[in-house]
Design a protein around this nucleic acid. Structure first.
Lengths: 176, 176
DNA sequence: GACAGATGTTCTGTCGCTCAGACGATCTGT
DNA sequence: ACAGATCGTCTGAGCGACAGAACATCTGTC
């Protein structure tokens, strides 16, 4: 169900095995769905992730939050401005470092997050409609492992070195 | 290996099970790696996907290509301009429709793609370093299923209806 | 304690990218 | 033959991201 589409008969494409393509398709679809769900939330899907951390984790500084979510620190500033204005989170002075602010959720923020999560969960299930329950769990688990692994090794880049190791062995100076 | 990071001791985060976060982390990491590999290719990672289709699939029109890759048709125009300028693909008149152009790869394009795919393959494996071989295969397969399913049902949106069905049951007019 | 350098947050300016809209050319149906 | 839709292209406007500077604060060394 949900997959059968007699119309337009999508022609076969060679990107099925392409990690970049599959990720892109799924991520764009997710973003569209999440955008719809979080339409009224400042910051959209990213605002929800910030809120999730603020509710469920130990309070983080803005920069820690920014790195975790993969956004620039200057962007985090106005993302939080909007969330604070909406009364969803607070900036608390860090007792151990007066430069940084710890982000914590308000009661209102918790309530909003519960509502969002509920709706987002349904949309996600719809998104993974092509998989049965077992496969969905496996996919989520695998993604969690990969993301955790990448996030742990992240301290930025790390990729560049790999690329260099592999070597830009050909077509070096000619721009193709 | 690769995962062990004694430094900074990443604190636990509640986003591990979050589909959006895991996808985001993986996709950003992929994009960074792919950007590095395709640094000299017009269009970067997207240019490579176009090239892949041009080499391996039946020739497609620009708009079909644009929809498959999830880019705006106006963007596809100058992406192709650059690829054509680089001598990687050609715009051929479609014998059955003089409005559209079919995108096909040149010999040069094929050679470049082979080189790119080889290097990208290595980077991808590094990216999935947190998983063993078996898990990598499973992840790729699951992603392929989901992406194919989504792509088949895609004819744009479809999400909005779901969101409406679920209902914006609360916090309706108050902007949080 | 005094200092140099590093880090957290914010502000400013700039750049690139994306999308909406309009246009001409062409196809399709009536 | 005509109306409406579609393909590719071009233009303009707007948004978002990043670099850099500024200020406050921390950490280490002397």
């Amino acid at each position: 169900m949900g997959v059968s589409v007699p119309a337009t008969s999508v022609p076969p494409n060679s990107l099925g095995g392409d990690l970049g393509w599959t990720l892109g398709v799924l991520f764009r679809a997710y973003l569209k769905a999440a955008d719809a769900v979080t339409a009224e939330l400042p910051g959209g899907p990213r605002g929800r992730q910030i809120l999730t951390c603020a509710v469920r984790d130990e309070p983080r500084s803005q920069s820690a939050l920014a790195q975790l979510l993969g956004v620039d620190r200057t962007v985090m500033t106005y993302l939080l401005d909007d969330l604070v204005d909406a009364g969803l989170v607070e900036r608390r002075p860090d007792p151990s470092d007066r430069r940084s602010r710890l982000i914590v959720a308000t009661e209102h923020g918790r309530a909003v997050l519960d509502n969002l999560d509920h709706r987002l969960g349904q949309v996600e299930e719809h998104l993974l409609g092509g998989l049965d329950d077992d496969e969905r769990d496996r996919l989520r688990t695998l993604l969690q492992h990969v993301a955790t692994s990448i996030n742990a090794a992240d301290p930025v880049s790390d990729t560049c070195e790999v690329v260099q190791d592999i070597g830009v062995t050909s077509a070096r100076k000619h721009p193709y």
